[in-house]
Amino acid sequence: MERLMKIDRRLLYLISVALVAVTIFMPLGLPVKVSPLAVQTYDAIQNLPDNSVVLIAPMYDPGAAGELNPMLKAMLYQCMERGYKIILGNTNWTLGVAIAHDMITPIAAEFNYVYGTDYIEFGSKPGGSVWMQSAQTDLAGAAIVDFNNDPIGQFPLIQAVPRLTQEYIAAVLVLDCGTPGAVEWLQIITQGTSIKLIVGEIQMSVPDSMTYVQSGQYNGMIAGSRGGAEYEQLVGRPGAALKSQDTMSVIALMVALFIVLGNIGYVTRKR
């Protein structure tokens, strides 16, 4: 039995690679049930007042793109279908805005969104929470130029949103994978205001972030790739997250099995 603790990890890697390959080449089409949290998140965005302005902050880099890209895409679709004005940008996550730029451009074209009026990209600004404080008092002054390096103050959407306060924005949608992230947006911008804070969270940070959902500080949370799959279904745009659930389910089973085997080995060794 003790051998169960000493399974060659290379064997585990080999089995995992085989499982991933099999589920990619032969999808099982396992059903993904939508959870109440996903519905709450979808509703939180859907029920914002018509013509709301939302700020979408892709606070991530390519490392987390696998989980967060599908969420961002679905969020963009939902916001544009509802006709919200979108301010897109972040602080300190340069590659996040580059990823988001590639994503929003075709979707905006699909919905005939006009740059500068219906949506704008202010790019990535340095400063983290300090920058957020500046944007809270003067958005154009804090951003200065947009993603394309054009002076941002000339655009109607920015003229209409002089500050990141509850008078001007209805919600902040954060794709979160580290620091600065959703907690900083909560601390500086949304805490104690009517601005909704909706978070797309990587699987790893879900337990931590759940406390903010329970306390009502996050009005909604897309929880990891599974949450992304549920949210894609609600938005009616099945995509990469939903596609990955077969593999994730099979892998979760495999990991659970090996944890049980390892623990059997551990317990019997102790005896």
């Binding site: 995992s16 390959a21 990619i24 793109a65 696998g66 990587i202 699987q203």
Partner: peptide, 21 residues
């Protein structure tokens, strides 16, 4: 937390595997 993190790591691997395939 461990379970969630392990799944996240697999998701990272899945992203790479998808890119390769």
């Amino acid at each position: 937390a461990f379970g969630n993190t392990v799944l996240y790591r697999w998701n990272l691997f899945l992203g790479r595997a998808n890119m390769l395939i």
